[in-house]
Lab assay of single mutants.
Amino acid sequence: EHQTACDSYWTSVHPEYWTKRHVWEWLQFCCDQYKLDTNCISFCNFNISGLQLCSMTQEEFVEAAGLCGEYLYFILQNIRTQG
């Protein structure tokens, strides 16, 4: 039997508790949902936990993801305040 992915999907966990996999799933979702250019995102810069992600500043997001960084930063802040 296969496990259902939704059990541990990033949407069901507060961002501060995300694993590295959750972070990448979220990035992929943002790219799909908001039509962000994946080429401007250095995924290696996001090989981090949710706690590390949440402690990043807006400037660090821009450094890590170029033009997309600002969008990603605000998307994350939205999730954190709603969560």
Rank of each mutant, 00 (worst) to 15 (best):
P15Q: 02
C44H: 12
I48K: 09
I75E: 15
W18L: 02
Q28L: 12
T4R: 08
A64D: 08
L67C: 14
E63H: 08
I48V: 11
C54S: 03
Q28M: 10
N78A: 07
S42W: 04
G69N: 01
V23S: 00
C30T: 13
H22I: 00
W26N: 06
L72E: 01
N78R: 13
I75N: 15
Y17S: 14
N45P: 04
P15V: 02
N39Y: 10
M56R: 03
L36Q: 01
Q52A: 07
G83E: 12
I75D: 15
Q28P: 09
I41Q: 03
L36S: 00
I41V: 08
E70H: 10
Q82D: 11
I79W: 12
Q52F: 03
Q58P: 09
Y34A: 06
L36K: 03
Y9H: 14
E59A: 10
K20W: 00
V23C: 01
H2Q: 10
C30A: 09
Y71C: 14
E25A: 13
Q58I: 09
S49W: 00
G69L: 02
I75T: 15
T81Y: 08
E25G: 08
K35W: 05
H14N: 11
N39L: 06
R80P: 01
R21N: 13
F74P: 10
L76W: 00
G69F: 01
R80Y: 03
H2K: 12
E16G: 02
S42I: 07
I75M: 13
L76S: 02
F74Q: 15
C31Y: 02
K20Q: 07
E70A: 08
Y34S: 05
A64V: 10
N47E: 12
N47W: 06
C44T: 14
C40K: 15
E16S: 11
L53K: 02
G66P: 12
C40R: 09
E16H: 14
Q82R: 11
H2C: 12
T57W: 06
V13H: 01
Q3N: 15
F43M: 11
S49C: 11
G66R: 04
R21V: 11
C44P: 14
Q33M: 07
W10C: 04
W18I: 11
K20P: 08
I41E: 05
W24H: 13
Q82N: 14
K35N: 15
T57Q: 06
I48Y: 04
C40Y: 08
C68H: 15
L67I: 11
Q3W: 06
E63W: 04
E25K: 11
Q58T: 05
H22F: 03
S42V: 06
N39K: 11
F43D: 10
L51A: 14
F74R: 15
T38K: 15
H2V: 07
T81F: 06
D37K: 02
N45A: 14
E1D: 12
N39D: 09
E16I: 15
G50D: 00
W26F: 10
C30F: 04
L27S: 03
A5W: 07
C6Y: 01
Q58M: 09
W24P: 00
K20V: 08
W24L: 14
C68R: 07
D32K: 13
C54A: 05
H14L: 09
T4Q: 09
Y73A: 01
S42N: 15
R80D: 01
R80E: 02
A5T: 12
Q28W: 09
Q3H: 15
N47K: 11
V23R: 02
T57V: 03
Q28K: 12
Y34T: 00
Q33N: 14
S42D: 14
A5V: 13
A65R: 01
W18R: 01
S42T: 09
D37Q: 07
L67F: 11
G83C: 12
G83M: 08
F61E: 03
S55K: 11
S42H: 11
A64E: 08
F46T: 03
C68T: 13
T19A: 06
Q3V: 01
I79Y: 15
I79D: 03
L72K: 03
Q58S: 07
P15M: 06
N39T: 09
A65G: 12
N47G: 06
H14D: 09
E1N: 15
H14V: 05
V62M: 07
F46V: 01
T19S: 10
C40N: 05
M56T: 04
E1G: 05
W18P: 01
C30V: 09
C44M: 11
Y17P: 01
M56P: 01
S55Y: 07
F61C: 03
I79Q: 09
W24T: 13
C40D: 11
I75P: 03
G83H: 14
E25F: 02
H2I: 15
W18A: 02
P15S: 02
T4W: 07
R21D: 15
L53M: 03
Q52K: 09
C31H: 09
E59Y: 06
C68W: 06
Y71T: 15
K20F: 01
N78K: 14
T4H: 13
L76M: 01
F43S: 10
T19H: 01
Q52S: 07
I48H: 08
T19P: 01
I48M: 09
T38F: 08
T4C: 13
Q28A: 06
G69K: 04
Q58K: 14
V13S: 02
D37N: 08
I75L: 14
F43Y: 11
L72C: 05
Q58N: 03
E25V: 05
V13T: 06
M56Y: 06
V13A: 04
E60N: 10
I79E: 07
P15D: 04
Q58W: 01
Y71A: 15
L53V: 03
V62P: 01
H2P: 08
T38P: 13
N45R: 13
K35F: 04
H14K: 12
E59R: 09
F74A: 15
T81L: 10
G83Q: 06
Y71I: 14
K35E: 14
Y34V: 02
T81E: 13
C30H: 02
P15C: 02
Y17N: 13
Q77F: 04
S42Q: 12
T4S: 14
C31G: 02
L72D: 01
D37S: 10
T57S: 12
F61G: 01
L36I: 07
N45V: 08
Q3E: 14
Y71S: 15
E1W: 11
G69Y: 01
S42R: 11
F46M: 06
A64Y: 08
L76I: 03
Y17V: 10
L67N: 14
E60K: 07
F74N: 15
Y73E: 02
W10L: 11
H22Y: 02
C31V: 12
L36F: 13
T38N: 12
T19E: 08
V13C: 08
C44N: 14
G69W: 03
Q28I: 15
H14T: 06
Q33D: 11
Q77I: 04
T19Q: 10
N78L: 03
Q77E: 09
F43R: 11
H22P: 02
F61I: 05
Q77V: 05
E60Q: 12
S42C: 08
Q52H: 05
I79A: 08
N39P: 02
V13M: 09
E63V: 06
Y71E: 15
H22A: 06
F61L: 03
T81I: 08
H2Y: 09
D7A: 08
Y73P: 00
Y34P: 07
N39A: 14
M56K: 04
Q33T: 14
F74T: 15
F46H: 03
W24C: 15
W24Y: 15
L76R: 02
C54Y: 00
N39S: 13
F29Y: 15
C44S: 14
K20E: 12
C31E: 04
F43E: 10
K20D: 02
I75W: 08
E16R: 14
F29N: 08
V23Q: 04
L36Y: 06
S49M: 05
D37T: 02
T57F: 03
Y17M: 15
Q77A: 08
S55Q: 13
N78M: 06
S12P: 04
I41Y: 04
A64I: 06
A5M: 11
N39I: 00
D32N: 09
T19C: 15
L76A: 03
Y71P: 15
N45D: 11
